[in-house]
């Protein structure tokens, strides 16, 4: 995995992916690519409840540069989708880069067998599973139940139905979802870190500027790294252990191929 720190989010994203071999290593010519940021809340970027719009824009541009035919950016939001898409600035940023930014409409959810430990039949967003590649770009936030919300938790935005019930067995659920969707690449936005009252907060008091972007194909690694940004130990987070046991990846993110660059 790669970690890049620097004042320019677009450059950091580019560098982080470049360190993994460039977007061409993940996206092929003519691909339809589904990009999944966190657009869940009716919040503005500086409140750090939604993925940084520059990060989204840069990822979309890179995917197109790698030869993608079509890029879809969407999320199943918690607040009103129109407000979330607009106030997060993600819609305008992604459209500027040429992506389609549709609202997740009910008819486009299909019931599938997730074959998870706890999640069996559930509605998932059709365009996300039909796309050739899925790129996950969560923002690193505190979460009042799971402690943190990073790459695995971000998968909840691809399912429909009464998702609130997942909270009863959240670590198992998000591992199930990650195992099902198998994103091609995870790019973690830690430009602004939401340290408290997550996942929605609503005040800049809870935000710390970290100017950091991490990228990996391994969701366990990236989540384990993300946890350390909060000063916590990955071992204390159940989804890390469960994810590792299920073979989704490894929690010792520094073990192999770890590259860290400071662009300051």
């Amino acid at each position: 995995m790669s970690v890049v720190t620097g004042p320019n989010p677009a450059l950091s994203v580019r560098k982080a992916v470049e360190l993994l071999g460039g977007m061409g290593a993940f996206v092929s010519k003519g691909d339809v690519v589904f990009v999944k940021p966190n657009i869940s809340w009716d919040r503005v970027p500086k409140q750090a409840a939604t993925t940084n719009p520059t990060v989204v824009e840069t990822v979309v541009r890179m995917v197109f540069e790698a030869g993608a035919k079509r890029v879809i950016v969407a999320d199943n939001t918690c607040n009103d989708a129109r407000r979330c898409y607009a106030r997060s600035d993600i819609r305008s940023a992604a459209e500027r880069a040429g992506a389609d930014v549709p609202f997740m409409e009910k008819r486009k959810f299909v019931k599938v067998d997730l074959q998870g430990e706890v999640l069996k039949k559930w509605e998932v967003y059709k365009e996300a599973i039909e796309a050739d590649k899925l790129i996950n770009i969560p923002i690193a936030k505190h979460h009042s139940l799971s402690g943190v919300t990073l790459s695995m938790k971000n998968m909840m935005g691809l399912i429909g139905g009464r998702r609130e019930r997942l909270h009863q067995k959240l670590p198992e659920s998000i591992v199930d979802l990650t195992a099902y969707f198998k994103p091609t690449l995870h790019i973690l936005d830690a430009i602004r870190l939401l340290k408290a009252r997550g996942p929605a907060s609503g005040t800049t008091k809870d935000v710390e500027m970290l100017n950091t972007v991490a990228a990996s194909t391994d969701p366990v690694k990236i989540d384990a790294f993300g946890i350390t940004l909060f000063g916590n130990n990955p071992k204390d987070f159940r989804h890390i252990g469960i994810g590792e046991d299920r073979g989704l990846g490894r929690s010792d993110f520094t073990s192999e191929g770890f590259k860290k660059i400071d662009l300051e």
Partner: peptide, 16 residues
């Protein structure tokens, strides 16, 4: 006796 927290997560006031 199960965790849920959905209400707290959605509560919109900056000071929850």
């Amino acid at each position: 006796g199960r965790n849920c927290i959905v209400c707290e997560e959605h509560c919109p006031t900056p000071e929850k």
